[in-house]
Every structure is written in structure tokens, then in C-alpha cells.
């Protein structure tokens, strides 16, 4: 039976928040205010997004594309804030998210896997950007840390006359693997360990499970493709920024503890 939650049912689900608050009080965790604030904030944020989506869905697809551009810009800014030590990471993220969008959305809509309409564009782009953002922060930091930690080895390779891209290759490769492996593991364990969000949502909304699974598989491949694209672009981009044109490593020394 498809779920159709009205306001009274939604209010009833507040009982679960009360359970969390009660547990916090019983165990003296002093998290009651935080739980209440987080629950209220989540509700307000999601309701605002819901109203905004309703407005966008009623308009032309150009509005949906504008939404996607805003998501990409916000995600790139988030990457910049989470990895401030990485030079030029915001511009790199913008380029990477743009490229991932062209590749993944191009495939999904170009091959008619999904119809191009606001109801598909915004959620798919959201999942793509959301997952790619986490991996982007990880790879940007890892490339910087690898080259900083292995600075002696990198310089020894440079001193043998290797170009910077070649000197950095083993260390950047390690960083790319570190950033990609969690996504691959998630892809492997999907369905066994957890039921992913898109599929769960569709089943709750009354869609046939096999239809929901087909959508979910396409989404998983979308996420995998976008994460691989962004991780590679950002990883190689950060590497380029950490060397000068005359093949010197410019990684700043690790701050003293």
C-alpha cells in the first residue's frame, strides 16, 4: 500500500523524537536540546526544499537546470570549506562536478534511461553531486597529505630527472584508490547490508519493488560514474597545482604540532 503521510501522521512520528529525547534524559546524555534542534531544523529544511521543488516542478526545465547549477556551486563551496588547505580546490571541484554532470547525466538522459524532466533531473543531479562531494573532499586532502608525507621520495624522483607527473604518480594513485574504494565497497554491499534511499523511497511510495530496483541500479551506476570522474579530475588537478612548471614540489611543510 503506498504511503501517503498527511500532517497528522507526520505529527505522530514526533513520538520517535520524544523517544530519543527520553533516552537522552534517562542516560543523562544532555543531548535533549540538540536532538530537538536537529529534528526541527531537518523538518524546516526539508519542508522548504519541498515547497521549492513544487514551485520548480511547475515551471520549465530551465528552472531545474538553474537548481542543478546552484547545487554544484554550493557543493564546490562546501569542498572549499572542508579542505581549505588545498590550493584552488573550489575551481577544481566546479570543473569536476561539471564534467561528472556532463558524463553521467548525458548518459542517463542521452540514452533515455530516464526521461529528462524536473522530477528526474533534480533528484539524480542531487545524488550525483552529494556523493561526489564527499569523495572530492577525501581525494583533495589525500593527494595533499600523500605528497606532503612522501615529500622526500617525491623529491628523490624529481632529482632523478623525472617529470613532476611521473614523480607524483605512485602517491596520487594511492590517494585516488583511497577515495574510490569506499564507493566501490558501497556498490558491492548494496542490497545485502542496506537498502539504499532511492529504492526505499520508491517502495514506500508504492512502486513495484523490481521497478524500484531497476531505478536504484541505474542510480548506483550514476553515483559510481560521477565519483570516479570527480575523484580523477580533482586528484590530478590538485597534483598539478602542487608542482611548479619547472617540476618543483611546492607542498607546504606540515604545520608543527
Amino acid at each position: 500500500m503506498p504511503s501517503d503521510i498527511e500532517w497528522p501522521e507526520l505529527a505522530a512520528s514526533l513520538v520517535l523524537v520524544a523517544v530519543a529525547v527520553a533516552l537522552s534524559m534517562v542516560r543523562s546524555l544532555r543531548l535533549e536540546r540538540t536532538i530537538l534542534w536537529a529534528s526541527a531544523r531537518a523538518a524546516v529544511q526539508l519542508l522548504l526544499v519541498g515547497f521549492a521543488l513544487e514551485a520548480v516542478f511547475d515551471r520549465t526545465i530551465a528552472w531545474s537546470w538553474a537548481w542543478v547549477f546552484a547545487m554544484v556551486a554550493f557543493a564546490a563551496d562546501t569542498v572549499r570549506r572542508r579542505a581549505p588547505e588545498v590550493p584552488g580546490v573550489m575551481m577544481l571541484s566546479l570543473v569536476a562536478f561539471g564534467a561528472a554532470a556532463v558524463v553521467t547525466l548525458g548518459v542517463l538522459f542521452g540514452l533515455s534511461v530516464f526521461p529528462l524532466e524536473p522530477q528526474t533531473l533534480i533528484p539524480l543531479a542531487g545524488m550525483m553531486v552529494g556523493n561526489a562531494m564527499t569523495a572530492t573532499v577525501l581525494v583533495a586532502r589525500r593527494v595533499l597529505e600523500e605528497l606532503r608525507d612522501k615529500r622526500d621520495e617525491v623529491e628523490a624522483r624529481l632529482a632523478l630527472g623525472l617529470p613532476s607527473a611521473e614523480a607524483a604518480q605512485p602517491y596520487v594513485r594511492a590517494a585516488l584508490r583511497t577515495a574510490l574504494i569506499p564507493q566501490i565497497e558501497t556498490t558491492k554491499s548494496v542490497g545485502l547490508v542496506f537498502l539504499p534511499g532511492a529504492m526505499t523511497g520508491l517502495i514506500l511510495a508504492g512502486v513495484d519493488p523490481l521497478d524500484a530496483v531497476r531505478v536504484q541500479i541505474a542510480v548506483m551506476y550514476l553515483v559510481l560514474g560521477s565519483v570516479a570522474t570527480t575523484v580523477t579530475i580533482v586528484g590530478l588537478g590538485v597534483q598539478r597545482r602542487l608542482f611548479t612548471a619547472d617540476h618543483r614540489l611546492t607542498v607546504p611543510a606540515r604545520p608543527a604540532d
Binding site: 622526500d152 628523490a156 624522483r157 632529482a159
Partner: peptide
């Protein structure tokens, strides 16, 4: 720089073996 570094080799303070 790459040809200069092949003509002018360097050994560092700490040993830097590669994997």
C-alpha cells in the same frame, strides 16, 4: 630542469628507497 637533474644527481639526508 629535467636534463639538468640527470646531469646533476642527488642523494638525500634520509635514505629514500622507493617501493
Amino acid at each position: 630542469p629535467l636534463s639538468l637533474r640527470r646531469r646533476v644527481g642527488m642523494v638525500f639526508q634520509r635514505p629514500t628507497p622507493f617501493a
